[in-house]
């Protein structure tokens, strides 16, 4: 059963078509990958799904409701969370306070009032904040200002911030860039755990290893269009995908030297 259905989305900026009739779904409780070369329109798709960008055409359905006309915050209140490719951490707040803000936004005005009166120590929810930081593995940075931490850490912070809102659908935009190898492995395990807990994840990612190992389904976007959808094994051998990533179809005469790369990139 699809949690999210993106139906025939078109986005045009001036004369440029960034997304062209993209149709794909993300299922409940699994990790779905959205991949494609740079500039293929992946982030624009995310913006459409979260409501930051109005589509020129097409609908977005979430939990069987048409949410195309919903404002950003309403979608978020219904469980759509996201991270950003170009970081949007609250730079002048500490890492811990970034997550607390998310908690408080999620909790609504009553928690703000409570927070104001009760102040720094919180009601025990503060503990929840620290648990979240621990879970994504950035507890050691809790007291640092968010604009002074490394990119990879800031991405994890954005993830923790999303999780504070208890999302049902998590959109991650290039979450692993800036992470080293061990961190990426740990991150992959975290994603799998989250999915097992029932959180659906849609992820734009360039690290093919990560995508191929954790994703249940993969959609490939190229030139604003979905050119392939399926399980990782199918995607790896899809000629359209090879063409998108390497500029060659398998039938192209002079792929000799590049074939190993093609195989490696997609394996």
């Amino acid at each position: 059963m699809a949690l999210l259905e993106v139906d025939d989305i078109v986005v045009r900026f001036g004369g440029v078509t960034a997304v062209n009739r993209a149709t794909f779904t993300a299922d409940r409780g699994v990790i779905t990958g959205l991949i494609g070369p740079n500039g293929a329109g992946k982030t624009t798709c995310f913006n459409v799904i979260t409501g930051l960008q109005r589509p020129t055409k097409g609908r977005v359905r979430y939990r069987d409701r048409d949410v195309t006309g919903w404002p950003v915050h309403r979608r978020a209140r219904h469980g759509v969370g996201r991270t950003f490719q170009r970081l949007e951490a609250f730079g002048s707040l500490s890492v811990r306070d970034n997550v607390r803000v998310a908690h408080e936004i999620h909790g609504g005005p009553l928690t703000w009032l409570g927070g104001s009166l009760i102040g720094r120590r919180g009601t025990g929810r503060g503990g929840g904040v620290d648990l979240l930081l621990d879970r994504v593995g950035i507890a050691e940075y809790a007291d640092e200002r968010a604009d002074s931490i490394p990119t990879g850490t800031a991405r994890l912070l954005e993830l923790a911030r999303c999780l504070a809102g208890d999302p049902q659908l998590l959109l991650l935009d290039e979450p692993s860039s800036g992470l080293d190898e061990t961190e990426t492995d740990a991150f992959g395990r975290l994603l799998v755990d989250l999915a097992a807990e029932g959180c659906s994840i849609l992820m734009v990612e360039h690290d093919m290893d990560l995508v191929m190992s954790v994703c249940h389904d993969i959609h490939v976007l190229d030139f604003g269009e979905i050119i392939a959808s399926g399980a990782p094994a199918d995607i790896r051998t899809d000629p359209n995908v090879q063409r998108a990533y390497l500029g060659y179809a398998e039938t192209d005469g002079d792929t000799g030297v590049l074939e190993p790369v093609a195989q490696e990139v997609l394996s």
Binding site: R74, R100, W112
Partner: peptide, 25 residues
């Protein structure tokens, strides 16, 4: 120093993030 203050700063730093976290700004 309280939650409202944090929200104000958060909104100044990144309105988009506040929106996607569910705040009706």
């Amino acid at each position: 120093r309280g939650a409202l203050g944090r929200l104000l700063i958060a909104m100044r730093d990144s309105p988009s993030a506040c929106g996607t976290l569910g705040l009706d700004m």
